[in-house]
Amino acid sequence: MDKEMRILYGAQPAVAIKKGGLYIQLLKTKEHMEKCGFHIDLNDPWKDPAPEDYNLFHLFGANFSTNILGTLMKDKDIPLVVTPVFFSKHSAGMLRMVNRSNSLLFKAFKISTPHIYTKELLDRADKILPNTPRESELITHGFGIREEKVSLIHNGVDERFYNATAELFVKTYGKKNFILYVGYIGNHRKNTLSLIKALQGIGVPAVFIGPLVKTPYGELCLKEIAKNKNITLLKPLPHNSPLLESAYAACDTFVLPSLFETPGLSALEAGLAGAKIVITKYGGTRDYFGDEALYVEPNNIQSIKNSIVKSLVKEKTNTLKNHIRKKYLWSFIAKQIEKIYRSFR
C-alpha cells in the first residue's frame, strides 16, 4: 500500500488545550506526512481503533500521561512509533541505576516512579524517534534500549520564518530591535520569573508573547513585569499568524532560558527569522544551534543577564539563519520520517 498507508497519531489527553511545542510538532508532522501521501488520523478517545485500519500508531511523548494509550495500542498489535521528548540532567549511567532501582521498588512494593512509565513505552515501541543526540544517548544507555530501534529525527521548522520581515510588527506595535520571549508566562519549566528579573537594569525594551499561567508562580511573574516599564506583555498569537513571524524578524535577541528545551521550537523559528539566540544550555540545544547561540545556566539570573547583554552588542549575521534552513526545514525532516513510516509497509 505504497501511497495508502494509514497512520494514527496520539499524545497526552490535554495536548490540544495546552498547545505548546509538542502540539505544533504533532500537527506539523501530520501536515507534512499527508503531503508525502500518508493518511493520518488523530486519535479520538471515544473511538476504539481497529488494528486492521492502521499500519502504525505514532505516539508523541513518553511519560505517565501517554503510557496507557501507547501500551493499549501495542496490545492491539498496531506497530508503535514513539517520539519520546525526554530529558534528564542525570548522566546515562545514573539514569540506568535509577531505572534498575525503580524496577526493584515496583516489583517488591508496587511503588511506581515516572521513569517506569517511560521505560515501559520505550521497551514496547517498535521504533523510537528522539529529537537530539543527547536524548538518543539517554534512551540507549540510560534506558537500555537497543540502538537499532532508535533513529534520530530533529525537530522541523517552517520555511515561512526564513522569509519573515519586521514591517508588520513594527507597524502594529511600533517596536523594533527589542528582546523577545515567546511562550507560557508563569510556567516554571520556562523559567520566566528568572528572565523577568534578569531584564531589570538592562534598559532595552522587551516583548513577551504568550498565555499567562494562572498559578502563584504566574502571579509573581506579573508582579515583576509591573516593576519594569520596558516589558510589554502581549496576548498569544496563533502559530500561523504573520505577526508572529514578523515579531521574530523585528526583534534583536530571542531569549529562552528554560530549565531545559528539546530544543525549543520558538527559538528555531526565531533563529530562522534572523534573531540572535540566548537559550538554556540543557536539553540538547547546542546540537541545534552550535556556536551561533549564547547558552545560559537557567538557575543563575546573572548568567541570563550577562548573555542577553552580550547578545545585544553582537552584530546580526545570517549564519544561524542559513544553518537552520539547511538542516531543519520540514521539507528535509519529512523525508526522514517518511522513510521510517514506509519501513512498516
Rank of each mutant, 00 (worst) to 15 (best):
C221V: 04
D291R: 15
P211H: 12
E224G: 08
A166C: 07
N322L: 09
G283L: 07
T66K: 08
L272R: 07
I209D: 02
G183T: 02
K281F: 03
D48Y: 12
V170A: 11
I304S: 00
L104S: 12
L320E: 05
G142V: 04
G264P: 02
Y248I: 07
P51F: 12
G264R: 06
H115S: 13
I40S: 08
P49W: 10
Q302S: 09
M73N: 06
T319A: 13
L320V: 04
L129P: 00
M33E: 06
I179N: 05
D44K: 12
G290S: 10
S88R: 11
K227E: 10
K107D: 09
I185Y: 02
K197M: 03
I301P: 03
L168C: 06
K28D: 11
L26T: 07
Y117G: 01
A273G: 08
K119S: 14
H32K: 09
S241E: 08
A249C: 09
A92M: 11
F208W: 01
I185G: 01
N67T: 09
A206F: 02
K35M: 15
F161A: 06
K276M: 08
S343C: 03
K89R: 15
Y248E: 05
E167K: 10
E224S: 12
W330Q: 10
G144P: 02
P84Y: 06
N318S: 10
R96H: 12
N318G: 09
K310W: 00
I209M: 06
H188P: 00
V296D: 02
R342N: 13
L272S: 01
M97S: 14
Y288C: 07
V309A: 07
T192M: 03
I139E: 09
Y23W: 15
N131K: 14
H39F: 10
A250M: 05
V255K: 06
H39D: 06
Y288A: 03
T165Y: 09
E137R: 14
L42K: 09
T172V: 01
K127M: 12
K214I: 10
I40R: 10
T319L: 11
D291L: 05
N163H: 14
K327H: 15
K229V: 05
F38D: 02
D41T: 13
L122A: 14
A250T: 01
V15G: 03
E261H: 06
M33A: 11
L42G: 09
G274K: 04
I116G: 00
R6I: 03
N318V: 02
K190P: 00
N228H: 08
T29G: 14
V98E: 13
L199C: 03
A226F: 01
P133G: 06
K223W: 00
V313K: 15
L180H: 10
K227P: 00
A16Q: 07
E147M: 12
Y162A: 14
L233K: 15
L265G: 00
K127Y: 06
I78Q: 04
D126L: 11
A206R: 01
E338I: 07
T71W: 11
D252A: 08
K223A: 12
T140F: 01
G203C: 08
T215D: 14
T192L: 02
D41M: 10
T165E: 15
L195W: 00
S343D: 11
